[in-house]
Amino acid sequence: MKTSLTLTLGIVSLAALAACSTQRVATVTTPETVAVVPAPSTTMVMGATPAVQFNAADTHFIAVAAGAGMYEVEAARLALTKASNAQVRGYAQMLLDQHTAANQQLMAMVTSKGHKVAPGMPAALQQKIATLNRASGADFDHEFVRTTGVADHMATIAEFERSRSSVADPDLRAFIDRTLPTLRTHLQQAQDLAGRMAG
């Protein structure tokens, strides 16, 4: 597990440690991930269930999936305001709806196991949004479809497929199995859209 943290992740992790000094903090710190920390709980509550222990692969997957999901939602919101092509806007709306739903499912599952995902998009993905935001008109449409639609979905699918065999938590594996077909559909639709825009 890498130890370098961005300032934001460091503050979140330190706050979590201060609030829950007896709990262990699981943090994944690659540039494209977010921190996963135990949710605060009061030890005075009778019958409180301790946090489910995630292994390193579980924590890594949650962080990567949460970061990618936040990025997809933010990129889709941007496309709804900047895209000049109606088909691109339609694709963006579909991404917004479906990635928002998947993000909510992931967060609910993580919360139900006594953990939370630190708020905020990873810095590397914030930079991708900033780069995308600098484009306009047809250039924006092509960049959004090429990057967010095709390249980023290919990377996310590869991560989900790798994680499928390494995560230990059965609910995470079920989330991967439910979400992968949707991600593959998003990729196929982006590839089709890119072909129509090129032709």
Rank of each mutant, 00 (worst) to 15 (best):
T156M: 07
M70K: 12
E161Q: 15
F144Y: 12
F175R: 06
A18N: 15
V167P: 07
P181W: 03
S4D: 13
L193R: 07
R134E: 13
D152G: 02
T3P: 01
L78R: 00
A35M: 07
V36M: 09
T111R: 12
Q104C: 00
R164W: 06
V37T: 07
G90Q: 14
M70C: 15
L80N: 11
G149E: 02
A158I: 03
A138T: 12
A151Y: 02
S166M: 05
A155C: 03
G120K: 10
V28G: 06
R146H: 14
V28P: 06
F144P: 02
P40N: 08
L9R: 13
L17H: 02
T3M: 00
D97V: 09
Q191C: 10
G199D: 04
A15T: 09
V28S: 10
D58G: 06
A102N: 10
T33Q: 11
A108G: 11
M46K: 04
M94S: 13
L172T: 03
P38L: 08
T22F: 09
L172Y: 05
A68C: 13
G10C: 05
V145F: 00
L187D: 05
A35H: 04
A168R: 13
T156D: 08
M46Y: 02
F144E: 02
A190F: 02
G47T: 14
I62E: 02
A26F: 10
A194V: 02
R196V: 14
A86P: 09
T29P: 06
P181V: 00
R164F: 14
Q23G: 08
I176E: 01
Q191F: 06
M1T: 11
A56P: 07
T3F: 04
A26R: 11
A102C: 13
E143D: 15
M109Y: 15
F175C: 07
L80C: 14
M197W: 00
E159Y: 03
V117N: 00
G114E: 11
A130P: 10
T30V: 12
A65P: 05
K128D: 11
D169K: 05
A194M: 06
R196S: 15
P40T: 07
P50M: 05
E161N: 11
M121L: 09
V52H: 14
L172W: 02
L180T: 13
N85C: 08
D192N: 13
Y91Q: 06
A19V: 09
L96K: 06
P50C: 01
L95R: 03
Q105I: 01
G90N: 14
A123N: 11
G199S: 11
Q189Y: 08
M44Q: 04
R146I: 07
A155H: 07
M44C: 03
S165V: 04
V34W: 03
T59V: 15
L172K: 04
L193S: 10
V145D: 00
D177V: 09
M1R: 06
H186Q: 02
A151F: 03
G120E: 12
L78W: 01
T179A: 15
V12E: 15
L17W: 05
P50K: 03
Q189N: 15
K128G: 08
L180S: 02
H115R: 13
H60Y: 08
V25A: 14
